[in-house]
Amino acid sequence: MPDGHAHAAPLDAHGHPHEPAHPKLQHHFDDMGQRAEASTLGMWVFLVTEILFFGGLFMCYLVYRWKSPSGFQEASFELNRVWGATNTAVLIISSLTMALAVRAAQTSAKRGTQVFFLGLTMFFGLVFLGIKAIEYTDKFVHHHVPGPHFHWDGQYPKPAEQFYSLYFAMTGLHAVHMIVGVGIMAVITWMAWRETFDEDYYTPVEVAGLYWHFVDIVWIFLFPLLYLIGGHFKG
């Protein structure tokens, strides 16, 4: 425990000495353990709502793909699998650096180490968003954005437009989550820079990490369902 946290044990109402309260303990919690457990449980519960939030979109995907499997294959074939795979790898790397950042906080690593891993996580998040931007631009250029200007040369223009509706809805919602994630990481990095985290108190990094990994998991499903179903499409 770093020196700054040591206090002389004060006496409680009954005159017994008791453990000093951690400076970051909010009044309504009994101890830091209860606080940490409440926060991580809260985040897990929040992630369950996220599962069902994205779940509604996956439901739409399931129904429409079930209705027009060939149309979806044809449409998927037009997506750039190299960019998709690259982005998958980028997100996996960022998940690794995130996990290492949590570990750095857990082990009271130097602030430089913590900031390094958090910064890398943020960086890869931004790379992901950059690649996404390139892909979106490409879709605009080729009139693959649903709406009045949508244009499709293949056999299944209607299902293709639907596929791209879902593509933009799903990856768009995912990208919004990435942007929020990068924002959260910025705050966490700043806190790490101020030497907030050590083995006694690292809940914010841990909780932010849970969110980050979740967004990665969504992509783990989006990538094959959107990019890879047309891999062996023969037109």
């Binding site: 699998r81 795979a85 998958t88 790898a89 996996i92 990538f223 094959p224 890879l228 179903i229 891999g231 062996h232 023969k234």
Partner: peptide, 11 residues
Amino acid sequence: TGLTVAAAEVD
């Protein structure tokens, strides 16, 4: 990830 990409190429 590599496996999925590869498997998708085969019908």
